[in-house]
């Protein structure tokens, strides 16, 4: 398997705080890669660095072999790397269909199409994906009126219609009830296997990430602590110490 994302030696400081120090990791194409670590260990900072939200202090980030650490958020998104947010972000006053339709990829969009209407296929595809995540009935409601869990599903659906090559999910199951979590795991796996979307997931729920991921990286205090299969990570004494506190 080739590596879709390669992060090598990336550091990010905010003033005197070192959020990421010399982080290296690889996200193989077609995989589900997990990223875990205690609160404040630098997971979201690393995500933000990868998607170009802020410049990195040192190191290199490549996507499909191409250096992207100097590109801006929109440019990286148009290359096919998309992220969802820890605090779910949807377009609250627009209805779910509009949320979906605005998320279709704008990779090659000529100026003349700025005013175009949405073609029938796009509408049908948006409806099909909303149905896939179970929101078809609510498609005409303002997205802001949905429950938090439903908004997470909508955000996931918006990412799907964008047909990214890789999707970076920041705590996809946070704040979702257990029943919905199982449904979401199924859908994530489905997106990975059938739509061929590589997933890179930050997750706090150990049951979820151990079930879902092929390989897991663990961060602590801004440094890479461990890497391995879910079983290896679960048995790694350093990981257990990082989460529970070493004596």
């Amino acid at each position: 398997m080739t590596n879709l994302i390669e992060v090598s030696g990336v550091s990010k400081r905010f003033g005197g705080v070192v959020a990421n120090s010399q982080i290296s990791l690889k996200v193989p194409e077609g995989s589900i890669t997990g990223l875990i670590g205690p609160n404040g260990s630098g997971k979201t900072t690393l995500f933000n660095s990868v998607v170009g939200y802020h410049p990195i202090d040192e190191g290199s980030i490549t996507f499909e072999g191409r250096e992207i650490s100097n590109l801006r958020v929109q440019q990286i998104a148009r290359l096919g790397m998309l992220r969802t947010f820890q605090q779910t972000r949807i377009y609250g006053k627009m209805n779910c269909m509009d949320n979906m339709m605005i998320s279709v990829p704008q990779r090659q969009m000529p100026l003349a199409r700025m005013f175009s209407k949405f073609p029938r296929e796009v509408i049908e595809r948006a409806e099909a994906i909303l149905e896939f995540v179970g929101l078809y009935q609510k498609r005409l409601l303002p997205a802001g009126s949905l429950s938090f869990g439903q908004q997470k599903l909508l955000e996931f659906a918006m990412a799907l219609i964008n047909e990214p090559k890789v999707l970076l999910l920041d705590e996809p199951t946070a704040g979702i009830n257990p029943t919905l979590i199982n449904g979401l795991i199924d859908r994530l796996r489905h997106a990975n296997q059938d739509f061929g979307i590589t997933l890179f997931v930050i997750e706090h729920n150990m049951r979820v990430i151990m079930n879902l991921a092929d390989n897991i990286y663990c961060l602590a205090h801004g440094e890479m602590l461990a890497h391995g299969s879910p079983d290896e990570i679960q048995d790694d004494q350093r990981v257990v110490d990082a989460y529970l506190g070493a004596h």
């Binding site: 998607v51 939200y53 958020v73 929109q74 998104a77 148009r78 998309l82 992220r83 947010f85 972000r89 949807i90 377009y91 609250g92 006053k93 627009m94 509009d98 339709m101 605005i102 998320s103 990829p105 704008q106 990779r107 969009m109 199409r113 700025m114 005013f115 175009s116 209407k117 949405f118 918006m158 964008n162």
Partner: peptide, 23 residues
């Protein structure tokens, strides 16, 4: 069509719109 939906998206969450690759 697309114009209204896009500027509405900018109104609701411009950062999200950027993260989705919108111009």
């Amino acid at each position: 069509g697309r114009f209204k939906t896009t500027i509405n998206a900018i109104r609701d969450d411009e950062e999200k719109a950027e993260a989705m690759g919108i111009h």
